[in-house]
Amino acid sequence: MNLAKFPRRGYVTDATPIEAVPAFSKALGGKVNIFIKRDDLLPGCAGGNKTRKLDFCIADALEKDSDTIITCGAVQSNHCRLTLSWAVKEGMDCHLILEERVKGTYSPQASGNNFLFQLMGVKSVTVVPGGSDMMGEMKKLEAKLSGEGKKPYIIPGGASNTIGATGYVSCAEETLQQLFEMGLNIDHMIVPSGSAGTHAGVVVGMVGCNAGIPVSGINVSRPKDVQEGIVHKLAQETAERVGVKGSIAAEEITCFDSYVGPGYSLPTDSMVEAVKLLASTEGILLDPVYSGKAMAGLIDLVRKGHFPEGANVLFLHTGGSPALYAYLDTFMD
Rank of each mutant, 00 (worst) to 15 (best):
R8N: 15
R9M: 15
A20I: 03
V21H: 01
G30T: 02
D39L: 07
L42I: 07
G44H: 07
N49Q: 07
K50A: 08
K53W: 01
L54K: 04
D55Y: 08
L62Y: 06
L62F: 04
I69D: 04
H79K: 04
C80S: 13
T83W: 00
T83S: 15
V88M: 10
G91S: 11
G91P: 03
M92F: 05
D93N: 15
R101E: 13
K103W: 05
T105Q: 09
L119V: 15
M120G: 05
V125T: 11
S132E: 01
D133G: 00
M134K: 06
M134C: 02
E137L: 01
M138F: 05
K140E: 09
S146E: 12
S146P: 00
G147L: 02
Y153R: 11
I155Q: 03
I155H: 03
P156Y: 01
G157D: 08
G158H: 07
S160R: 06
T162F: 02
I163T: 14
A165S: 15
A165W: 03
E173A: 13
E181R: 14
E181H: 10
L184N: 12
L184W: 00
H188W: 14
H188D: 10
G197E: 04
H199E: 13
G205D: 08
G205E: 10
M206R: 12
S216M: 14
R222Y: 13
V231L: 09
K233G: 14
L234N: 07
T238E: 07
T238R: 11
A239T: 09
A239H: 05
R241C: 07
E251M: 00
G261T: 07
L266A: 12
S270Y: 08
V272Q: 13
L277I: 06
T281N: 02
P288V: 12
I299G: 01
K304C: 02
P308G: 01
A311K: 09
F315Y: 14
G319F: 02
G320M: 11
T330C: 07
